[in-house]
Amino acid sequence: MTAPVTAGSPAAPPSTAHHDRATIQENTLRTDRWWVTPLLTFIGLAAFVVYGLVRAFMNKWYWAGDVHLIAPFYSPCLSQSCVSGSSHILGQPIPRLPDWLSWVSPAMMVLILPGGFRLTCYYYRKSYYRSFWFSPPACAVPDGHKTYSGETRFPLLFQNIHRYFFYGALFVGSVLTYDAFLSLSGKDGGIGLGVGSIILFINAALIWAYTLGCHSCRNIVGGRLKHFSSHPVRYWMWGKVSVLNGKHQQWAWASMVSVVLADAYVMLVASGALTDVRIFN
């Protein structure tokens, strides 16, 4: 530790002026390619958003009835406008919308949950604050803004609702898992298995790894405790969640890619452009 503060040393007020800093002309002296990561992040996130928007407005090709595949972006399909067969246990509680709202697809009604979950996720916040908002673009590279209040006030104060989206994400994960099991029905009844089902299972597994590694989850299952020793079960769970949490960024990207691939696969099968490769029945 550096020089201890001796009792009675004057509590000089923190300096508030820039002019007593070292005068260095360059904004940053970093010589490495610090801009590569924010650039790749920008491209990756933008591609995901564009895919999501296109898909949400498409409003078709989300149910491949003969092989029982539902596209993750449209599940659960809760509206009475959903194509027949695409809704399952949750039914169709949302009535058909009036004509002037016909562009609102069933996907938009459910994407709020996973979309909000990712938007307020601590990892995604880091990635878009850096790559879209330049706040900061990289470490020791100047913030692109004149003033800064962080997450202290509206609208960014709302990032604190991440907790609720986490509860919602538990529901989404369950639905996607159910969808994967549902796809195990064969073409002529009974049990069947196709490449589509395998894709849905992999996607569900990655979504769970991302969801359960959430920082809010880590806090709720045990992180908020002061005495782990008196809560052995929660301590154990906290340990497992912490393992997933350590790779939260990787799970975020893996599950983002897998959900797009799974959705695109079902879209291609539903549109007839591709036939689901069947392993049996």
């Binding site: 601590y122 880091k126 900061p136 020791a140 962080g150 997450e151 202290t152 006030r153 920082h215 806090n219």
Partner: peptide, 28 residues
Amino acid sequence: GLGYCNITKCCTEVCPEHIKITDNAIIP
């Protein structure tokens, strides 16, 4: 001023003791 932190993790990136400042202290 915890709310000023936007969890962009530069503190964690530079810590020579490899303390997971953001993941283990700030976010909790």
